[in-house]
Structure formats: C-alpha cells, structure tokens
Amino acid sequence: MPEAQLRRPAEQIYAAELAALAKGDDHARPANWKLSPQAVATYVLGGKAADGTPISAKYVGNRRLIETAVATLATDRALLLLGLPGTAKSWVSEHLAAGVSGSSQRLIQCTAGTDENQIRYGWNYALLLAKGPSREALVKTPLVRAMEEGTILRLEELTRMGSDVQDTLITVLSEKTLPVPELDTAIDAERGFNIIATANNRDKGVNELSSALKRRFNVVVLPSPATLEEETQIVIKRVGEIGGNLSLPPIQPADKELARVVTLFREIRDGKTLNGKTKLKSSTGTLSTAEAISVGVSAWAEAAHFGDGRIDARALATNIVGAVVKDPAQDGVALSEYLETVVRTRDGWSDLYGAIREVI
C-alpha cells in the first residue's frame, strides 16, 4: 500500500493537485504530456487550479528558471539542471517529470560503477544462450522504457558516471533512436520522450561532460536561495513536509530554531556574518539548504522521541556539528571560531553556544 512506502513519489503525494490541474487545463498539451506547459509551471511554482484547488509551491525561486526548464522539455532538447549540491536539482527534476509524464520513476542514478548496459539495454543471458539475440531476451532499461512510452527519463548526477558511458547518450539525444545492432534494428522514441539530467559543479570525483554531449542539453542553473528569508521559508516548509511524510510525532512549531540553523549555515558558508562586519573561516562542506533541512528533520525526531516535544538548542547541536564538521581539522577550527566570535556574543544564542560546546 502507498501508505507503507518510506518515500512516495511526487505523483502519489500530490495526486490531488495534479488531477485538479489536469481537469481544468484548457491549454495545448504536447504529445503524451499529462499537463500543458503552463499547468506544469503552476504545479511546480504553486498557485491555483481552475476549480480553485490550491497548488503548493514545490520550488521557491526565480519563476523564469522553471518556465525555461518546462519550455525546454517541450522541444527536442534535453534539460540539464546544474548547480551546487543541495540546490533542489533532484527535487525539481522529480516534479517536472511528475507534471509532464505523470510519473517520475523512469530514473537512472548515475555512479562511477554505471556501465553502458545500464544506460542502453542488457540481455537475459539464459534466453540469449537458449534462443540467441531476440526482442524477448532484451532487458529494457529505464531509458528504453521512457523512449517507448514517450515519457521523461531522469538521469541523476550525470557527471558521476564515466565520460565514455555518458557519450552513449549522444545518439539518443541527437537522433531520438537507440540502435540495437545485435538485432539489426533500433528503438525509436515516441513523442513526449525527453531527458532531465542533474549535475553539480562542486563535488570531487566528477567527470566533465564532453563538448558533444553538452551541446545537446539546454542548461538551467539552479542557484542557492538568494536571501535568508527565502532559504528559511524553504527549510521550514520542507522540514514540515518530510516530518509529516515520515509520520514523526507532532512537536511544537520550530520556526525560530530552524531560522537559527539557516543563519548559522549561511554565515559559515559565506565566510562572513549577515551584516558583513565579521569575516569567518568557511567550512569544507557546502552547508546547503538540503543539509539544513536534514538537520531540522533529525532534530525533530530527537525532540519527539528523546526530548520534551520541541526543537531546542540541545536537539540541534549534534546535528549541526555533524553537518558542519566534515573535515575534523579544518571544519572544527571554523566552527570553533564561529562559536567564539559570533554565537557566544549574539543575543538569544547563548543556549546554542553551550549546547554545541558540549558536543565538541
């Protein structure tokens, strides 16, 4: 049952919103799209359906970025969502696929171990030995299924897999066909097929895209939230959604505590206080919005199960240290400096200073 799933896909969680948008959607829809481009943008950015059903915002940021992404998917160009870790690339990719195709589950998670067979197709070797190459022996990958269905394929962390494997996509992106030389045939993409890839430009261990492959993508760069208020809004919203989906015991509102987490992350990440008056050492980690959300959810679980039902400094402290201190030497120094120069003297933060000092 869907309720038993640890993490339900977007099209299940937001099924009512998608249905309301589809019902009142009188704009033109590209072939095999479940919603029009305008309705997909409304689904991602929030608004109201034609019947007044409220549509929650899945992405808080520049509207033009999402409109460009949706418009790209309506063409024959693939979409590459690029940005720092934790800037909602995978989140946006999932919701775009849900809005366009009604399913976000045609997915390949790219890693250093991803090989060509996991991208293109494989073989059932028992059937291959018994009958030789045949359609029956062909093992379809998510790419093949998306091409046959005319739906969206998601490639997560594209630059994690080797450059030679990446380049197997060139023919698919250029010709919209996948040759199967063993059968002297090819698999042609149905209308509506497209690819959304994500990649980040900071992590170590990534493989640069070839120029030939880059030319076949439209790139949309998703930035970090522009302001403290915007990032805090995102964190509060997502912590509430994730905690609810995990059925965590209810706790008291924690907006102020989550705002402190976001402030701390932004200041260490930027290497200066919000007012710009104090320079700080930066950490080696990204301290992204996604990590702030993770700290909030973990603190919620700790407060609910081991605390008094409210997120306080003690519930935050261990989680903050775990997020900030990736390199014990460099990051430990950065956090200690921040505690002494900022947290210790900031009004209303003495509890957080003491709680973190207990941990480190």
Rank of each mutant, 00 (worst) to 15 (best):
E17V: 07
E17R: 07
L18Q: 07
L18S: 06
L18I: 13
L18V: 06
A19D: 01
A20C: 04
A20N: 02
L21Y: 13
A22W: 01
A22I: 03
G24W: 07
G24Y: 08
G24D: 08
D25Q: 00
D25W: 00
D26R: 12
D26S: 06
D26I: 10
D26C: 06
H27I: 14
A28S: 14
A28D: 09
A28N: 13
R29W: 12
R29T: 11
R29D: 07
P30N: 09
P30D: 08
A31N: 04
A31P: 05
A31V: 13
A31I: 09
K34H: 14
K34E: 12
K34P: 08
K34M: 11
L35H: 05
Q38T: 13
A39Q: 10
V40R: 08
V40F: 12
V40I: 14
V40G: 06
A41I: 04
T42H: 02
Y43F: 13
Y43P: 00
Y43N: 01
Y43K: 01
V44L: 03
V44A: 00
V44W: 02
L45R: 15
L45T: 06
G46F: 15
G52V: 04
G52Q: 02
T53P: 07
P54S: 03
P54V: 01
I55P: 00
S56A: 14
S56C: 11
S56F: 13
A57T: 01
A57C: 03
A57N: 01
Y59W: 11
Y59I: 05
V60S: 03
V60E: 02
G61Q: 05
G61E: 04
N62G: 04
N62W: 11
N62P: 09
R63A: 06
R63T: 08
R63M: 03
L65R: 13
T68N: 15
A69V: 04
A69R: 02
V70W: 10
A71I: 02
A71E: 05
L73W: 05
T75Y: 04
D76I: 00
D76M: 00
L79Y: 08
L79V: 13
L80G: 00
L81Q: 08
G83S: 11
L84Q: 15
L84A: 15
L84Y: 15
G86S: 13
T87A: 06
T87H: 03
T87W: 05
A88G: 05
A88T: 03
K89C: 04
K89V: 08
S90A: 12
S90N: 14
S90W: 08
W91G: 08
V92M: 06
H95Q: 06
L96R: 10
L96V: 09
L96W: 10
G99M: 01
G99R: 01
G102D: 09
S103G: 02
S104Q: 11
S104L: 10
Q105L: 12
Q105K: 09
Q105R: 13
Q105P: 01
Q105H: 08
Q109N: 15
C110L: 14
T111F: 13
T114V: 05
T114C: 11
T114E: 03
D115H: 07
N117V: 13
N117Y: 11
I119V: 15
R120L: 15
R120K: 15
